[in-house]
């Protein structure tokens, strides 16, 4: 049943190749992007787990 649905799609054999190219490009772009942005750019994000209690500790609101 589902085989007929799949068979009836035009050009379905191209889908895997297209997706592979897309994903490969995605990773290349991602890595270039990360190298270009530099480490400092991400510092605030990396500190999220740590600042949740230090800055907004309800017991020491002034901290």
């Amino acid at each position: 049943m589902y085989k007929d649905v799949l068979r009836s799609m035009d050009g379905i054999e191209l889908f895997p190749s297209i997706s592979l190219i897309l994903f490969f490009s995605f990773f290349v772009i991602l890595i270039i992007y990360l190298i270009r942005t530099g480490k400092d750019f991400w510092e605030d994000a990396a500190n999220i787990p740590l600042d949740s209690e230090i800055i907004f500790n309800p017991k020491n609101p002034e901290k």
């Binding site: 995605f26 991602l30 942005t37 480490k39 510092e43 990396a46 500190n47 740590l50």
Partner: peptide
């Protein structure tokens, strides 16, 4: 990071790691 009280070694690596 919580238990050692220091941020993750490389956030950029974690992005590549994830994807």
């Amino acid at each position: 990071p919580k238990a050692s009280n220091r941020p993750i070694f490389s956030y950029r690596l974690s992005i590549v790691h994830f994807w």
